[in-house]
Design a protein around this nucleic acid. Structure first.
Length: 498
RNA sequence: GCCGCGGUAGUAUAGCCCGGCCAAGUAUGCGGGCCUUUCAAGCCCGUGACCCGGGUUCAAAUCCCGGCCGCGGCACCA
């Protein structure tokens, strides 16, 4: 990671400030992870701050506070202090009195249209509310707090350059009235009706919390300019800001509104739907935190938008999970395979869970002279093209007949060398006895495909969240295990990538 | 429309501030080969980019100007 401007070891303070109106997604992971990584790099401090100051249009989700904490922990992000803005309104109110006394802010009790007229015509200097005395403003402020004004009847504005080239900068709104009897706040209920805007609360908190470096998306660039006026009124020094572009994960649903819409339609998968680019969705799909961390560090802090392709994320993820994912044999849309003329009565094959041999092994007993197995329907084609096939880790067979309900084969030979000699394809197989039903959920863009099959007996011992590789199919995460007592009936897995 | 920020291979990123070592590095993808009891991993080879046009300079991806394109903001959202 590139160094931070004017960063001193031990003195860097970063923050991650989500709005708890929803869970966090991959885009939020960027400021969260980078803030954390820089904190670690400079042995500083990181703050988690919930920005929940709009109970009306961005009503906080009560459970989101904890879900966000959980997601951050899962990502490996550790923060040192935590704040909730809705619990800090008195602090903001006190700053307001100071600003008002200094003549740096004023109560605007005219209509938005009236203000806009003065602002857009460059007449802001002469806007009557702007010219009010500090004493009158203080009095009006108290009236606001006491409830003399209804929603939309008064706001508090911070004085800026009244002729700033960007009109949106001019005398921005710092507080507005929200009728919390109509729109209660999940934490403070209807206790407060005068709420700070993002620019006020974030700016004040960044100072009070000693934040030295802000990492935020570039949609805040104009906000930085607005906030600097507040800092200059208060005589504060503005932190260093690093802006970066937006992040998109190709093929995933990212926008909050689209996610909410799908949730309402009832996808049955909730916030962790594997089609979502939410942290929970990616976790569900078998993406590990380290992969997200590496991706964020690679993407960095450029101003340009980045469109991440899933294969890229998958490649990083694969390199992390490949060494520790058990290889499990599973066949989908199973087809019966009958092997005849086996020269031995019974034999046990020992198959390592990983080609490296580092994950142990399981034993499978096979018995002759006639053996019934299951193979994947997708491999039938291979059997039509190749007369000799090797059953992985077992023996070789000759295909005799491909019928619609079964494949008849004869034992051919034992060794791998022999299979090579014939150029025999190697396929996975499942012994029907003690096998487990498996449902593989495959997210594909907006669709969720499900394919069904059976897995070998060893799959009975898989645990939820375990990452496995179904041989010749791909990596997947065990999502659920259905059992009756100790008897595992079925496992459901979510496909991660090949 | 008005403010602001950007544009390096399919994707992501390095280099740009401090011009030459960049006929542009890395990862991933793609093509080919090797290896391998997986369509995984590993190894080798190849593929492919400095938005366009001017200018400054002995020399420009790097500096300047113009254009084009993309993104963000213009909220009593964050």
């Amino acid at each position: 990671m590139p160094p931070l401007p004017e960063a001193v070891e031990g003195r860097v303070v970063t923050r991650f400030a989500p709005n708890p109106d929803f869970v966090i997604h991959l885009g939020n992971a960027r400021p969260a992870i980078l803030s954390y990584e820089y904190k670690v790099m400079y042995k500083g401090k990181m703050i988690l701050r919930f920005e929940d100051t709009d109970p009306r249009t961005k009503t906080p989700l009560p459970e989101a506070y904890e879900l966000i904490r959980q997601d951050l922990k899962w990502l490996g992000v550790e923060w040192d202090e935590e704040y909730i803005q809705s619990l800090r309104l008195e602090i903001y109110y006190n700053i307001v009195r100071e600003l008002l006394a200094k003549g740096a802010a004023y109560i605007d009790d005219k209509s938005p249209e009236e203000f806009r007229r003065y602002r857009n015509e460059g007449m802001l200097d002469n806007y009557p509310p702007r010219r009010r005395s500090p004493e009158d403003n203080l009095e009006l402020w108290d009236k606001m707090l006491e409830g003399h004004f209804g929603e939309g009847e008064a706001v508090l504005r911070i004085k800026t350059d009244p002729n700033h080239p960007d009109p949106s900068i001019r005398d921005w709104v710092a507080f507005r009235i929200i009728d919390t009897s109509l729109h209660p706040h999940p934490i403070t209920g209807d206790k407060y009706i005068v709420w700070p805007t993002y620019n006020f609360a974030a700016a004040v908190d960044d100072h009070l919390m000693g934040v030295t470096h802000i990492l935020r998306a570039k949609e805040h660039m104009q906000n930085t300019i607005k906030q600097k006026y507040l800092y200059s009124h208060m005589g504060w020094e503005y932190p260093h800001v690093i802006h970066f572009g937006r992040l998109k994960l190709e093929g995933f649903i990212m926008s909050k509104s689209a996610l909410k819409k799908l949730l309402e339609e009832g996808t049955g998968q909730g916030l962790s739907d594997p089609r979502f680019a939410t942290i929970a969705g990616l976790r569900r799909r078998g993406i590990v935190p380290e992969a997200i961390r590496q991706l964020m560090i690679e993407v960095g802090v450029k101003h340009t938008d980045a469109s991440i392709s899933y294969v890229n994320l998958a490649a990083i993820n694969r390199s992390i999970i490949d060494p520790k994912a058990k290889r499990i044999m599973a066949v989908f849309e199973p087809v019966k395979l009958v092997v005849k003329n086996i020269p031995w009565g019974s034999r046990t094959v020992e198959i390592p869970y990983h080609p490296s041999g580092s994950l142990g092994s399981r034993r499978i007993m096979l018995s002759g002279p006639s053996l019934e197995l299951l193979v994947s329907r997708s491999d039938v084609e291979l059997m039509l093209r190749n007369s000799v096939i090797r059953l992985m880790e077992a023996f070789n067979i000759t295909i005799k007949e491909v019928k619609h309900d079964a494949i008849i084969a004869y034992y051919h030979s034992e060794s791998l060398e022999e299979a090579r000699k014939y150029g025999a394809p190697i396929i996975q197989w499942v012994k029907p006895e003690n096998s487990v039903k498996v449902e593989l959920v495959v997210p594909e863009g907006l669709d969720l495909q499900r394919i069904y099959g059976v897995a070998e007996e060893a799959a009975r011992h898989l645990k939820i969240d375990e990452l496995v590789q179904f041989v010749r199919v791909g990596f997947a995460r065990i999502d659920s295990v259905q059992a009756e007592g100790d008897n595992v009936k079925k496992i459901t897995a979510v496909y991660a990538h090949d």
